[in-house]
Amino acid sequence: MTPDDYCQQKAAASGSSFYYSFLFLPPDRRRAIMALYAFCREVDDVVDECQDPALASTKLAWWRQEVDRVAGGQPQHPVGQALQAAGKSFNLPAEQLLEIIDGMEMDLQQARYLDFKGLSLYCYRVASVVGLLAAEIFGFQDRQTLRYAHDLGMAFQLTNIIRDIGEDARRGRIYIPMDELKQFHVPAADILNGRYSDNFTALMQFQMERAERYYDQALAQLPAIDRKSQRPGLIMAAIYRTLLREIKAENYQVLHQRIALTPVRKLWIAWKTWAFA
């Protein structure tokens, strides 16, 4: 199996909506974004699947060394090898790859966020940095596109937090800021124990409206000259905003289930967005 095959399988097996946005890219850009996505999956899986925080920290330290080996031309892992190949054509700074690992490591250090300022740093590291790297791979002419990529990454991560709130709670994590739980009179115990209430619904509506503002802000900042090259991000935005509407239609019943779109629906949205964006 080649490094590219490994990354392709890693991306496809995840079932992520991101996978559908990559399918329409030219081969060189598709290989590069698959490598970046596989890297994110590898380091995220370390945190989500490793029960021992000390072991997870050790594994993340190994990935930090692998990023250094990628920069030095001697990667060991198939994902590292694919990233090295991608780096010959696209600007993928080691500093930004390391910052993604910094974000994953935050999950080993804290399970709560006092306010949105603290959560924003986490979202920046695990999502906006990925968006900035992806923008480099997709290609752009106007640097304003990087502001779009930053805000779109924030919107994606806020959507993930809404979608995964129950799943995260079962891991002992609550990403919704503590001051907002207090503002809406939702005890953390309600999240952890899967208890719904009118206050919880109002809290989730607040979270969704903030995510929507980031989508609106991002799309307003995308220069017309880069719209076609950045279509994968527009596909993701279309899929994720459809998901948000589904969650709202289900009255934010996200504590006991993971609401998702079917693969066929994602593919339809991806094709339609690519054709008409």
Rank of each mutant, 00 (worst) to 15 (best):
P26Q: 05
A54Y: 10
N91A: 07
D102S: 13
L36E: 12
Y37V: 04
G80K: 01
R41I: 02
F39G: 03
C7V: 03
G15R: 03
Q81L: 10
Q65L: 10
Q84T: 10
Q96P: 00
F39E: 02
E99A: 14
A86D: 01
H77L: 03
M34K: 06
V70K: 04
A56G: 11
F22W: 13
T58F: 14
E95C: 05
D28R: 14
D28M: 02
Q74V: 12
G73C: 05
V43D: 11
A94H: 00
P78R: 09
D28L: 14
G15L: 03
G15T: 07
V43M: 12
K88G: 00
Y37T: 10
A94K: 06
A61C: 07
M34L: 14
A56F: 05
Q8I: 08
R69D: 15
P27H: 04
A38N: 07
D68G: 10
S89P: 00
L36W: 13
R30N: 11
S14V: 09
D68V: 09
A12N: 10
A82C: 03
A32Q: 07
Q65E: 15
Q96I: 00
R29H: 01
S16D: 10
R41D: 04
D102V: 07
D28C: 02
L97G: 12
E99K: 13
Q74F: 03
D52Q: 14
S21W: 06
G80R: 09
K88S: 14
V67G: 11
L97E: 13
V79L: 07
V79M: 04
G15H: 02
C50W: 00
N91K: 03
C7K: 03
C7S: 05
S89M: 08
I100P: 04
C7I: 04
L25W: 08
A11T: 15
A86Q: 04
L25S: 10
E95M: 02
E95F: 00
W62H: 07
Q81S: 05
Q84H: 14
A56M: 04
V47R: 10
S17A: 12
I101S: 03
